[in-house]
Design a protein around this nucleic acid. Structure first.
Lengths: 253, 253
DNA sequence: GTCTATAAACAGATAGAC
DNA sequence: GTCTATCTGTTTATAGAC
C-alpha cells in the first residue's frame, strides 16, 4: 500500500527539536540560485523551501531563520518583514527558472518560420525541458513546491511570478502548439489545450503522493522520469497529430 | 444511496472571514455532505472549506468555529482536537465523493466484458464526470481544494482518503484504459498514462490562477467547463487511439 | 452538550547594544 | 549588519460553570 506519510501522528509544526547541524546555506540542492553565503541569500533559500513546504502562514520566521543559520531579526532588516521575504523568494525563483530552462527569447518571427513538424518538435522539447526541471532536478523541488502553492493561493508574489515567468513562457508554448496544428495561437482552444497538456506534467508534482503510491515507487529517479516523459510525449504527439488532421479535414470540407 | 443533487444556483464564494451574517451550516453549497445542522456537521463543513483554503496550519480553530457558528471548545469535545477534526473532514469527503461521482462498483468482470470502443467511452465518461465534479460543482470546490492540499502535503488524513477513495477509482480507470488500448492494467505505462491524462483536469484546479489569467476569465462557468472538457476529451481519444494503433503494429511485427 | 475564562506556548515585529 | 531581549497579539487546549 505504500502510502507516503510525512508525519503520521500529528503535524510536525514545531519541527526539529535539535538545531540543524548544517545550515541551509550549505545544502547543495539550493546552491544554484540565490548564490552567495550571505544572510540575504541564505534567507531566500530557506524561505523558498519552507514557504513552499508549509505555506506562508505555516512557515514561521523563526523556523526560516533557524534553517538559514541566521538571526531572526535579519528578516526585518533585509526584507522589511515576512511578506518582503516572500516576495523576494518569488523574484529569485523567476530569475533561477529563466536561467535554467532557457526557451526565452523565441521571437514571433522565429516561430512563424517553423513548419508543423519543427514546431511539434520544439513544443515537445519545451515540455520535456519543463518536465525534467519540475520533476527531476533536486534543487528545483523546493522551487516547484513554492510555485504550485502560489498557484493555488495566489498572493502578491504570484503577480510577479506570472508576469515575468509564467505568462511569457505559456505564450511561447501556445505559439509553438498553434504552429504545429495550424490554429490561432491566441484562441481559447489552443490556450486550453496547452494548459491541459502541461497538466500531465503537473500531476506528478502535485499528485505525487498518489502517483508514487499507485506505482509502488518511493522516489522518481532518472529512468522513472524518462518513463513518465515518454508517456507524456506520446500523448502530446497524438493530440497534435489528431488535432491537425481534424482541422485540415474541416477546412477541406 | 444516491442522493439527488440539485444543480447549484451560481453563487459567489463562501462566507467571508469577517462577521458572517449567515453561519456556514446554512450555506446550501455544502449542504449535501456532513448533513445535519448539529455542531459536529457544521464543524466538518467549515473545516473542509478552511483547511482546504488555508491549509492545516493556516486555518485556525477559532476561524473554523466562527464559520461554523459554534463554540471553539466544541472542536475538542467532538473530535479531540484540531487533528481529529482534520481526519473527520477527510472521512466525510470520501463518503461525499463516493456518493456523488458513483463509478463504483465496477467489477473486474464487467470491464473484461467491454470491447475497446465501449471501454474508451466508459473511460471518457468517467474523466468527464470527475472533471465536472472537480471544476464545475460549486459545492465541491472546497472538497477539491482540500484533496489537492492533502496530495501536496500528505498527512494521516491522506492515508484514509487514498485507501477509501483515490486508489479504488484510479484502479478502475486503469482497467478501463487498459481495456481500451489492449494493455496490462497493472503495467507502469498504463498507470502513468491514466495519471497524466487526469492531470489535464487537475491543471484547471491547481493552476487555476494561471489558466484564468491566460484566458481572460474570472470564473469557469458551464460553457467554459464544456470547452475545457471538450479539449481534454479529444486529447484522451487521441491518446487511446494512437496507443492502440502503436500496440497492434508492435504485435504484428 | 455547550458555554466562558484562562493557561501555556507561539507568532511577527522592533528597540537598542555592539 | 548582526545580535539579545522584549512587546503585543494569537494560537491550541483545557478547566469548570450551567
Amino acid at each position: 500500500m505504500l502510502v507516503p506519510m510525512i508525519d503520521p501522528p500529528a503535524r510536525p509544526r514545531a519541527a526539529s527539536p535539535a538545531a540543524p547541524a548544517v545550515p541551509a546555506s550549505q545544502t547543495p540542492q539550493l546552491a544554484a540560485f540565490a548564490r552567495g553565503d550571505d544572510t540575504r541569500s541564505a534567507l531566500i533559500r530557506a524561505g523558498i523551501d519552507l514557504f513552499g513546504r508549509n505555506g506562508f502562514d505555516g512557515a514561521s520566521t523563526r523556523e526560516i531563520a533557524r534553517a538559514a543559520g541566521v538571526n531572526i531579526a535579519g528578516i526585518a532588516y533585509h526584507f522589511g518583514g515576512k511578506s518582503g521575504l516572500h516576495l523576494a523568494c518569488g523574484e529569485a525563483i523567476a530569475g533561477f527558472v529563466a536561467e535554467t530552462i532557457g526557451l526565452l527569447p523565441v521571437p514571433e518571427t522565429v516561430v512563424a518560420g517553423l513548419d508543423a513538424e519543427a514546431a511539434t518538435e520544439a513544443f515537445v522539447a519545451a515540455v520535456n525541458a519543463l518536465g525534467r526541471f519540475m520533476l527531476g532536478r533536486a534543487e528545483a523541488e523546493s522551487v516547484a513546491r513554492f510555485m504550485v502553492r502560489e498557484q493555488m493561493d495566489p498572493s502578491a508574489t504570484f503577480a510577479a511570478l506570472y508576469e515575468t515567468l509564467i505568462r511569457p513562457r505559456h505564450e511561447i508554448m501556445c505559439r509553438l502548439f498553434a504552429r504545429a496544428t495550424g490554429e490561432d495561437p491566441t484562441s481559447e482552444a489552443v490556450i486550453i489545450a496547452v494548459s491541459a497538456l502541461f497538466g500531465q506534467i503537473m500531476f506528478f508534482r502535485v499528485g505525487r503522493a498518489t502517483a508514487l503510491a499507485r506505482l509502488g515507487w518511493e522516489v522518481i529517479d532518472p529512468p522513472r522520469l524518462d518513463a513518465i516523459l515518454a508517456v507524456v510525449t506520446a500523448n502530446i504527439r497524438a493530440a497534435i497529430a489528431t488535432r491537425r488532421a481534424a482541422l485540415s479535414g474541416e477546412t477541406r470540407s
